[in-house]
């Protein structure tokens, strides 16, 4: 049944599985992290119980709501991670999670995360056995030297075609990688300049090939 308002959830009430609270050490280092656009709960096993047949049970909580919720795939598990992507997919909400250690009929108190806000955590990484590919968004800044105007565009592929440029004009470009989520200062590339042709009738498209600009200097900090 739901918790009465303003009552901090009692650690035991969030874990209906009957177990004796025998002062078992809690799991440690419990954190949410966004890996490959998935929200993974990770923790370290309780100290001092190496070799014992200890399993862990995960619960999660939607901030502002009333009940701790469980995920059956993460009940009494031996691994020290649990994929809570589906459970934490609503970017409007913030979440907590708890893990308790169970050894026979004894259990620990729940180790609890801080408040997790998926909206702030969007980082895209994909990996296979040999490589990690990073899906980055690039923030391209273009400066028209004649008009003394700068504009910028975000692109996710490695080529940007700039149309409708003025003839006989020097344009300078620099690129910085942009990763959504908590602010990260990215080192912009060196400035590269190119001038459009004098003949106004010629094509004004200039392909800015990223492999000239990007490898030179984009670094992700």
């Amino acid at each position: 049944e739901p918790l009465p308002p303003h009552v901090t959830p009692n650690p035991l009430s969030s874990f209906p599985v009957p177990c004796v609270h025998a002062g078992l050490p809690k799991p440690t280092n419990i954190t949410f992290s966004s890996i490959n656009m998935e929200n993974i709960l990770q923790w370290s096993p309780p100290e001092g119980l190496q070799g014992a047949e200890v399993t862990d049970t995960v619960r999660y909580f939607i901030y502002g709501q009333k009940k701790w919720l469980s995920k059956s795939e993460c009940r009494n598990i031996l691994r020290t991670y649990c994929n809570l992507s589906a459970e934490t997919s609503d970017y409007e909400h913030q979440y907590y999670a708890r893990v308790k250690a169970v050894w026979g009929t004894n259990c620990s108190k729940g180790a609890q995360t801080g408040r997790f806000y998926p909206f702030l955590e969007k980082v895209a990484l994909t990996t296979d056995k040999k490589s990690i590919s990073i899906v980055l968004t690039y923030n391209v800044s273009i400066y028209n030297t004649k008009a003394n105007k700068t504009w910028s565009q975000c692109v996710t592929n490695q080529m940007l075609v700039l149309s409708w440029l003025e003839p006989d004009t020097l344009y300078c470009v620099h690129v910085a990688s942009f990763v959504p989520g908590p602010p990260r200062l990215a080192q912009p590339s060196e400035k590269q300049c190119v001038s459009t042709l004098k003949d106004p009738a010629s094509a004004l498209k200039v392909k800015i090939l990223f492999w000239y600009v990007l490898p030179a200097s984009v670094t992700v900090s």
């Binding site: 901090t8 502002g64 408040r115 702030l120 602010p183």
Partner: peptide, 20 residues
């Protein structure tokens, strides 16, 4: 956002009434 991100964990840890 930058400013708040530096103190967020600390301030949120003080809030124990997570069901409101």
């Amino acid at each position: 956002r930058n400013g708040f991100s530096e103190i967020r964990d600390h301030v949120q840890a003080e809030d124990e009434i997570i069901d409101v």
